[in-house]
Design a protein around this nucleic acid. Sequence first.
DNA 1: TCTGGGGTCCTAGGACCC
DNA 2: TCTGGGGTCCTAGGACCC
Length: 355
Amino acid sequence: MKNKIIIHVDMDAFFAAVEEREHPEFKGMPIVVGADPKEGRGRGVVSSASYEARKFGVRSGMPISRAWKLCPEAIYLPVNYELYEKVSNEIMGILRKYADKFEQWGIDEAFLDVTLKVKGCEEAKALARRIKNEIYEKKKLTCSTGIGPNKLVAKIASDFQKPNGLTVVKEEDAEKFLAPLPVRKLLWVGRKTEQKLKNMGIKTIGDLANYDPTVLAETFGVMGTQLYLMAHGIDRSEVKERSEVKSISRDVTFEEDTADFDFVLNTLGRLSEEVHKDIWEQNLCFKTVTVKVRYENFETHMHSKTLPFITDRLQDLKKTARELIQDYLKPDRKIRLVGVRVSNLVSAEKQKKLT
DNA sequence: TCTGGGGTCCTAGGACCC
DNA sequence: TCTGGGGTCCTAGGACCC
């Protein structure tokens, strides 16, 4: 069987880069896209920071209050998701035509299986250059690309040199390339798994590759076997087009924690309307409704109910959401966040056939 | 550090059916 | 009265991704 060649494309500081493109007057300045910093009292996090802002230590996911302390002189902008989604769709359209198989990954990344399009790594590299050029010429945005024998290696490679990077890792070099990197670089290794591994004395991907796979399987279950394989640069997952959406949700964190239940219920109603607008536009019906509540101490709970029928009616959503939240409305507990989600989705057409 | 908002997938227990 | 094994669906929660 022929070795696969996968390209991973990752847009550089995507939201911040789009804003910089739209606002030439901010060019070269530190740009932070995210929650309103409110002079350091703001709630919420950084969604994206330009490379200029990163020089001050600002990173995405960081509390916006901390970003303010690190760099009060930055340009702070709210998240304009609709704009980024539009630009994303344009970019994905460009990328798609270069791939035998294509998989979008989040709003600003994609995997391209180009095994049939190129003869080897040199050709893949030339192709990646062409992709980068086309995106820059047409969209005035840069990206980093990684080429590898599978999705895992390609993704880690694209992260290796940023921004505007191009890294090639051949199959025979994959293990050596991965070994010195921290385990956190692996897909599916987040904060919790990183800590667990650290407790076992595993810090780098090389440490993981040399660990007893039996113990990994005992400790992490199915995931343990996966970790061991990944550490050896093995990933057999396919690049595949994303199928239909599985759930649609809206949630909101209040500016201040609240025990004003009329306010909470009104917000829940508004979120339900937004979710309903989405399912309406996408011609979907739902069967399950889930309500989420986060209290001021960050304790988070979810309640869900599967209806005995399939529906697309706003009143079904609103009524169910209201019922579900009742248990969580306690006078002595202030609420930080509410959210509503629909799942068990069926396309309206299919639904018609069923009835 | 004081922690958003949009998702996906996995696990584990319980209900229910055969 | 005590009891099996398998399958499916539902619910709650957690980890992870961007």
